[in-house]
Simulated scan of single mutants.
Amino acid sequence: MDERRGKAPEIHPSSIVSSRARIGRGVRIGPWCSIGPDVEIGDNVELISHVVIDGRTTLGDGVVCYPFTSVGMAPQDLKYRGEPTSCMIGARTIIRENVTIHRGTATGTGLTRIGPDCLIMANSHVAHDCTLGRGVIIVNNVVMGGHVVIGDDARIMGAAALHQFVRIGHAALVGGVCGVEADVIPYGSVLGNRARLVGLHWIWLRRNGVQPEEVRRMRQAFRALYPKAAHATGAVFQDRLEHVRQTYADDARVVEILDFIAAPSHRGLVRVQSGDMIESDGA
C-alpha cells in the first residue's frame, strides 16, 4: 500500500487493501471492504463497510461510500475485453447504499467520470463512459445506459431510466419513473412514462439567485421555442430557433439552451407534446 505522508489511514482488519493501492491522509476504511491495486483514494475518504473499489479508479478528497457500493468494476458491455479503462469520482461526492458505478470502455471515452459534490442515492446505476457534472443529484433506483452525459446541478428523480447516449443539460429536472429516450435541454423539466418537455426548472432558477427579469426573459424565449400550438405560428422549429437566437443573443442562459440544441446528438431532443401545459409554476 502506497501511503501518503500525514495522518495514517484507519483500515479495519477484515478489509483487503492491495499493497499497490495509493491511500490518502485521514482515510477511513471500514469492515469487509476490498481495494484493488490500481485504485487511488484521496484524503479524508470514508468507506463505511462492504465497499468494493476496483480497476483504475480514483476517489477524490472527502468522498463517502456507503455499504455495498461497487465502484470501478468492469463495464456491462459484451465488447469489453479487459482494456485498462478508468473511473473517476469527484471530491466530496456521496455514494449511497447498493450503488454500482462501472469504468469506461475502449470503444467509448475510456472513462466514467462523476464530478465533485454529487449525491448518488441508493440502488442507482451509473454505466460505462457516463459523465456527470458538478452537484448532480441522482435519486434512488435511477438507471442509465452507457455514454450518458449529465450537466452540472441536474436532478434525476427516483426510478428514472436514461437511454444510452442521452444528454441531460445543466440544471435540468427529470421527473420520477420517467423514461428518457432523447436529450433534455439545459434548465428543462421533463415528465412522463416517456419523457416530454413540460417547462423549465423554475425552482432551481429561483433557488440559485437568477433574477426575476432574467427568469421572465427565459420564459419568453421558451414560449417562443415551444408555443402551445406550434402550427399556429407558421414556422418550423428551425425557424423558431433562429428567431430566438437573434432576439435573445445577450441572454447567456438562453444562448446556453440554444447551443445545447445545436450540438451533435445521438438521440435528438425531448419535445413538448401537443396540448401539454408547458408552464409548471402557475405563471
Rank of each mutant, 00 (worst) to 15 (best):
H128S: 01
D129C: 09
D129M: 09
D129F: 03
D129P: 07
C130Q: 03
C130S: 11
T131L: 11
L132V: 00
L132M: 10
L132G: 01
G133W: 05
G133H: 04
V136D: 00
V136H: 06
V136A: 03
V136F: 01
V136K: 07
I137S: 07
I137A: 06
I137F: 06
I137N: 11
I138P: 09
V139P: 10
V139K: 00
V139F: 02
N140R: 11
N141S: 12
N141P: 00
V142S: 06
V143K: 13
V143P: 03
V143A: 14
M144V: 06
M144G: 04
M144Q: 07
G145Q: 02
G145E: 04
G146W: 05
G146Q: 02
G146N: 04
G146L: 05
G146A: 02
H147W: 13
H147C: 10
H147F: 09
H147R: 04
V149C: 01
V149N: 02
V149I: 10
I150N: 03
I150R: 04
G151K: 09
G151A: 12
G151Y: 10
G151L: 10
D152N: 14
D152L: 14
D152S: 14
D152P: 07
A154G: 11
A154E: 00
R155T: 14
G158F: 04
G158T: 00
A159D: 03
A159N: 05
A159I: 05
A159W: 00
A159L: 08
A160E: 08
A161T: 13
L162G: 05
L162F: 03
H163W: 11
H163P: 04
Q164L: 00
Q164D: 03
Q164E: 01
F165C: 00
F165V: 00
V166P: 06
R167I: 07
R167H: 09
I168A: 06
I168Y: 08
G169Y: 06
G169E: 03
G169F: 13
H170V: 05
H170K: 12
A172E: 00
A172M: 13
L173V: 01
V174N: 00
V174F: 05
V174M: 12
G176V: 05
C178F: 07
C178M: 04
C178T: 15
C178D: 02
G179A: 13
G179F: 10
E181N: 14
E181P: 10
E181Q: 07
E181A: 15
E181R: 14
A182D: 07
A182W: 10
A182C: 12
D183K: 01
D183R: 11
D183G: 09
D183A: 12
P186Q: 01
P186H: 03
G188L: 12
S189I: 08
V190L: 02
L191F: 14
L191M: 15
L191K: 10
G192M: 12
G192N: 13
G192V: 15
G192E: 13
N193H: 13
R194Q: 14
R194C: 05
A195K: 02
A195H: 02
A195E: 00
A195N: 05
A195L: 11
A195C: 07
R196C: 09
R196I: 11
L197N: 01
V198K: 14
V198I: 15
L200M: 14
L200T: 12
L200R: 15
H201P: 07
W202M: 11
I203M: 09
W204E: 15
W204A: 12
L205Q: 11
L205A: 13
L205C: 11
